[in-house]
């Protein structure tokens, strides 16, 4: 039963992604991409990975596609002149945030408070702790290093994008 649904959703996702390429208007392509992302999220739900499904919807179908739609719609219009308003006190706030973050990091490191769950993800484990709890436990214990490396990479990407955008001005 589940397999049938997964096949249907997979097929729909594949058709939608083909339509992304073959759709005439750019906006229609973007919309087919939303459909494709949504279908992948449905497949995640059918595989009992609800957390991943929700992230798929929020991050891909929601945020990223919203940005792409915005860019497409914006290109049809004339560009508005955006004025530069300097953020006051941003350095002070940044410094305070940095100090607080660093203190939290040190305190967490001193406490060793996280009790990790080890071993493979089984049904009993999921039943006892809930899906999100199991996933986050693995993410913040066994896979902490890849997780943090990925977050630093993403931050570097954001900083890089800002630098590139500023250079063209």
């Amino acid at each position: 039963m589940e397999l049938v649904f997964i096949l249907i959703c997979g097929g729909l996702a594949a058709i939608a992604s083909l339509l992304v390429i073959f759709a005439r208007s750019t906006l229609h392509s973007a919309l087919w991409m939303v459909v494709s992302f949504f279908m992948v999220a449905v497949i995640y739900v059918l595989l009992h990975a609800q957390f991943l499904a929700m992230l798929q919807i929020i991050v891909y179908a929601g945020a990223i596609m919203m940005f792409i739609l915005y860019a497409i719609m914006m290109l049809n219009l004339r560009r508005e002149q955006d004025e530069k308003v300097p953020v006051r006190n941003s350095k002070i706030f940044g410094l305070v945030a940095l100090v607080v973050l660093f203190m939290e990091l040190v305190m967490v490191a001193l406490q060793h408070g996280v009790e990790a769950i080890h071993g493979p993800i089984t049904d009993q484990l999921v039943q006892a702790h809930g899906r999100v709890a199991v996933l986050s436990n693995f993410l913040f214990s066994d896979y902490l290093l890849p997780f943090e490396v990925a977050s630093i990479l993403l931050t570097a990407g954001v900083v890089g994008a800002v630098v590139l955008a500023k250079r063209t001005k």
Binding site: F38, M54, L55, I58, A61, G62, M66, V132
Partner: peptide, 18 residues
């Protein structure tokens, strides 16, 4: 009662904005 209800609300309401 999902264990991701809050995320569901955030995600679906974004889709609604489409």
């Amino acid at each position: 009662d999902l264990d991701v209800s809050v995320l569901l609300v955030l995600g679906i309401s974004t889709l609604g904005a489409y």
